[in-house]
Amino acid sequence: MADSSTSLDALSVQLAQQASDLAEALGSLLGTPVHLDLVRRSRGVDEMAGQVLKLCVQQARDAGHTWQEIGDLLGVTRQAAFQRFGKPIDPRTGEPMDKTVHMADAAERALAVVKDVLEGRMDRARRSFNAEVLEAFTDEVRADGLATVTGLVGAFEGFGEGEPFVRRIGDHTVVDIPLNYEAGDMKARVAFDTEEKVAGIFVLAPEAP
């Protein structure tokens, strides 16, 4: 706890300084704003704030607060809070699980697969499938799935405004993509295996963990 508190104190000081520098830059610009410099400074503040938030969540957990309480504060489910900040132990090895996302292009690849599936370009979509999905995700399965979604929320109208949410869950890289339908919102979920092949593709309710 002492190490965590010390790190949090140090990061909080750095965050305050970065925020102060950003505010000064915003207030002292002359002529044409140096937009890229503001982007750079803002990104630094955002990254530092993320580190501070991570340590604050860690201290809250150490103090006995539940993932439900933390999720409620962050406006997400307890599972989403755990997936972002938790430190799961791999039951196979007893070691902390690697949560690092190694697929740099996971969001772009997931978006391309979802577009191909929704627009019927299955020959192209299947190039990304692993053997299990290639066998299971037939044209009939696709049609039945899309019909079920249409029955729930109507016709597909486009992709949502939010950015794809990428994270590592176990051995998989998982991407959630917001979707807009005529009578409600949904999200597409694409899971990639360790070979970076599609191991699962779903259309889910937006609140699904």
Rank of each mutant, 00 (worst) to 15 (best):
V101P: 15
K187D: 02
L204S: 00
T148H: 07
A104C: 02
A155V: 12
T138P: 02
A16S: 14
L152W: 05
L29M: 15
G160H: 08
I70C: 09
F156V: 08
D105C: 06
G27K: 09
F202A: 08
T100H: 06
L111V: 10
T148G: 05
C56A: 07
E47S: 10
D98Y: 10
P88N: 04
R92H: 05
M186G: 09
M1R: 11
L8M: 05
A16F: 09
F202E: 12
M122N: 11
H65N: 11
A10V: 15
C56G: 01
D21H: 06
A16Y: 11
G170H: 04
A183P: 00
V57A: 01
A136L: 08
E135Y: 08
L204I: 08
V45W: 02
A60R: 08
V117Q: 06
H35I: 15
F129G: 01
L36A: 15
R189Q: 08
A19M: 09
D116R: 06
V174W: 09
V113N: 04
L8W: 14
L146K: 06
E161T: 14
D193R: 08
L118N: 12
F165V: 10
E95W: 06
K115M: 03
K87Q: 13
S128I: 00
F137D: 10
R78S: 10
A208E: 05
H172Q: 07
R41Y: 04
T148P: 00
V34D: 13
G94Y: 07
Q68R: 11
D72N: 12
R78K: 14
K54F: 12
L111R: 14
